[in-house]
Amino acid sequence: MLSERDLDVFEILVKQNYEKVFKTIYFYTKDKYLTEDAVQQAFIIAYKKLNQLKSKDKFESWVTSIALNEAKHILKNKINKKITIINDFHIETLSYSEEDNIDLKGDIDNALNKLKHKDNEILVLRYYADLTLQQISDLLDISLSNTKVRLHRAKEAFRKLMNQEINQNQEVEVQWPYQKKNLSE
Rank of each mutant, 00 (worst) to 15 (best):
S143W: 00
T147D: 05
M162P: 01
S145W: 06
L151V: 07
D141S: 13
Q135A: 15
A111K: 02
D119H: 04
I166F: 08
K118M: 05
K155P: 02
Q134V: 10
E171S: 15
S143A: 07
R150C: 04
R159S: 14
I122R: 03
W176D: 10
H117N: 08
P177R: 04
L161A: 14
V149R: 08
Q134G: 10
K114Q: 10
K118L: 06
E171A: 14
K116D: 14
A111P: 00
N169C: 11
Y178G: 12
T132W: 02
A129P: 09
N120K: 07
Q135E: 15
E173L: 10
S143H: 05
Q179N: 03
Q164F: 09
I142L: 06
Y128W: 12
V174R: 15
E173F: 12
K114W: 00
T132D: 06
V124G: 01
A157G: 04
N120F: 03
L144E: 11
Q134A: 08
V172C: 05
M162S: 13
W176Q: 12
Q179R: 09
I122V: 11
K160Q: 11
E165S: 12
P177T: 05
K114Y: 04
N146K: 13
Q170W: 12
N163M: 11
E156P: 02
E173T: 12
D141R: 11
T147N: 06
Q175H: 10
N167Y: 13
L125H: 09
D141C: 04
E173W: 03
R159K: 15
I166K: 03
L123V: 02
Q164Y: 14
N113W: 01
L123H: 01
K160M: 07
H117G: 02
K148P: 06
H117Q: 08
L112P: 00
W176T: 11
Y127K: 08
L133G: 03
D141E: 14
Q175S: 14
A154W: 00
A154Q: 01
R126G: 09
L161C: 05
D119E: 11
A157I: 00
Q179A: 06
E171G: 08
L144D: 13
L140I: 03
L151M: 03
L161G: 12
N113D: 10
R126H: 12
E171K: 15
K155N: 12
K116I: 01
L139Q: 07
Q170R: 13
E165Y: 04
R126F: 09
N120A: 14
R126Q: 05
K148C: 08
K160A: 07
D141I: 14
L139R: 02
K180R: 09
A111Y: 01
L139W: 01
A157P: 00
H152T: 14
E156C: 04
V124L: 13
N113F: 03
Y127W: 10
I136V: 10
K148R: 14
Q175M: 13
K114V: 06
Q135N: 15
N146Q: 15
E121P: 07
Q175W: 14
K148W: 05
N146D: 09
L151D: 00
H117S: 09
L125R: 07
N169E: 13
A111V: 05
H117K: 07
L144T: 09
K160S: 11
Q164M: 14
L115I: 06
L115N: 02
L144F: 13
L115W: 03
R159P: 00
D130F: 11
L123A: 08
A111R: 02
D119G: 05
Q134N: 12
A129G: 13
D138V: 00
